[in-house]
Simulated scan of single mutants.
Amino acid sequence: MEALDRFSPEEKDIIRRSWKVLDKNLNNTAYNIFEMIFNQSPDTKQLFPFMKFQQSGKSKEIEFHGLRFMQVLESVVKTLDNPESLNPLCDNLGRVHGRLSESRGFRTHHWGVFIECTLFHFRKVLSQDSYFHRMETLDKVIINWRTILRLLIKQMKRGFNTDIKNRQASRDLEDNNKASTSSSPISQESCSLAVPGCGSMMSQSLTLPTINNNNYRKGSDSRRE
């Protein structure tokens, strides 16, 4: 998030001022953002199997998750002068989404849907404020928020890609181990008497011819004579 250092003092002030407006009705805004995400991209519902999508009335699960997302944005606002402190948080969020990509089908294009739905409702709320209702001011703050969201996603993608690479490396290692343990043993046909463990070959090589007992006795008798 180091790129936030490029924000001018004026841009930081307008972001902080906009957050004060958004914070007044944070629950509804958060809920509306995620409701729009689910409507625009229904496949995102599979990412939240614990949520109850009701036909009427608000889902407490959606509202709760929406507020968690808003807490991340609040952290961004509070650290505009020290944005690198957000890197561990973004990295962890990226890794979480990396796990979701494997377990619940998360795709990186979902982040694009998330950005557009967030900006839509931010604009809707801010346009009702006496300071931001002017088009020029409103456009300026929305552009700044778009930059923030893109930087946030960019930092999260680093953790996301790291998690994906680590998972692939673990799978490759596991496959190699399985291949090693399941390799065929040395063929017994290539064994010689000097190689231990080839019991059947040794038994064949060391088998002595059967001695005819009668011949053996005759030979013994002839020696007596």
Rank of each mutant, 00 (worst) to 15 (best):
E2G: 07
F7T: 07
E11S: 13
I15L: 15
S18R: 04
W19Y: 13
K20S: 12
K24Y: 05
L26H: 08
L26D: 02
N27C: 08
T29V: 12
A30D: 06
F34K: 09
F34E: 01
S41Y: 03
P42S: 11
L47E: 02
F48Q: 06
Q54D: 01
E61T: 13
H65A: 05
L67I: 13
M70V: 02
Q71M: 11
E74Q: 14
E74V: 00
S75A: 13
V76R: 05
P83T: 04
P83H: 04
N87K: 14
L93I: 03
R95K: 14
V96P: 01
G98E: 01
S101H: 13
E102K: 14
R107H: 06
R107W: 00
T108Y: 11
H110D: 06
F122L: 15
R123M: 14
R123Y: 11
R123D: 15
L126Y: 05
Y131G: 10
R134M: 14
M135L: 11
K140Q: 11
N144F: 04
R146Q: 13
R146G: 10
T147F: 13
T147C: 06
I148Y: 02
K154S: 12
M156L: 02
F160C: 06
N161S: 10
T162N: 11
K165C: 06
R167M: 14
Q168K: 13
A169Y: 00
A169R: 04
S170T: 09
D172K: 09
L173G: 00
E174D: 12
D175H: 14
K178H: 08
A179Q: 15
A179Y: 04
A179P: 04
T181P: 01
S182G: 02
S182P: 02
S187C: 11
S190H: 01
S192L: 09
Q204N: 13
T207F: 09
P209C: 04
T210W: 00
I211R: 06
I211A: 05
I211P: 01
N212L: 08
N213P: 07
N213G: 10
